[in-house]
Computed example of a mutant assay.
Amino acid sequence: MSTTEEPTQGTTISVTEQAAEEAIALLEGESMDTDIAGLRLYVQQGGCAGLSYGMRFDNEPEEDDTIFEHHGLRVFVDPASMNYIEGSVLDYEGGLQGEGFHVENPNVVSECGCGESFRT
């Protein structure tokens, strides 16, 4: 389902303003056009709990991606990943423990001890 429109009820990914600002700054640092390019959020096999999150910048969405826009940031999610992460919030955390993006996923039933992988 390729869309730049509002996704169907219940299938949404949210992005905090802080996460959007950080991602947009990184996109611009890579000289990517933030009107077309975006952050790809996906789920992959791996980690001690079975699944892990992945993120990368893409110049444009794939044909079957769902596209979310929050605070000027475009987020691309493929259909298979959407099954695991719908309803999630992408946040950015800073501090003494390190900085980085974090996915708050309401579908997770357990995480590994390091917090890098999960099970739904």
Results as ranks from 00 to 15, higher is better:
D35S: 15
E28K: 08
I85T: 11
S81P: 07
T66G: 12
E28G: 01
A20Q: 08
E5W: 12
G38N: 10
T12I: 04
T3P: 04
Y92R: 12
C114T: 10
L96A: 14
Q9E: 11
P79R: 14
N105E: 05
T34R: 08
C114D: 15
L26S: 03
M1W: 09
S117R: 10
A25Y: 00
M82D: 04
E17V: 02
I85C: 14
Q45W: 02
E69C: 04
T11F: 12
T11E: 08
N59H: 09
C48W: 00
G94N: 03
Q45Y: 04
R119H: 09
G72M: 12
A20C: 10
N83Q: 13
E116W: 03
T16M: 09
E104N: 11
G50T: 05
G94W: 05
D91M: 03
S2M: 09
V15A: 08
V75K: 05
H102W: 02
V89P: 00
A25T: 00
N83D: 14
V103K: 07
T3G: 15
M32Y: 01
S110Y: 08
D65S: 03
A49M: 11
F57Y: 15
L73M: 07
N59L: 04
G115C: 00
D58I: 06
F57R: 02
L27I: 07
T66F: 03
T3Q: 14
G38C: 11
E22N: 14
N83F: 07
C48L: 02
S52P: 01
A80V: 13
L73Q: 01
T16F: 06
Y53P: 02
A19K: 11
P79V: 14
T66A: 05
Q9N: 11
E17D: 10
G50K: 08
V77R: 10
E63C: 09
P7V: 06
I24Y: 04
G10N: 14
L96M: 10
A25L: 05
T11D: 01
D35V: 00
D64Y: 11
I85A: 11
M82H: 06
N83S: 05
T16E: 09
S14W: 07
E86C: 12
C114Q: 07
P106Y: 09
P7W: 14
E104D: 10
Q45C: 06
E28Y: 01
D64C: 05
E69W: 06
L41M: 03
S31C: 05
A19M: 12
S88F: 02
T16Q: 08
G95W: 01
A25E: 04
S117D: 05
Y84S: 09
G94K: 10
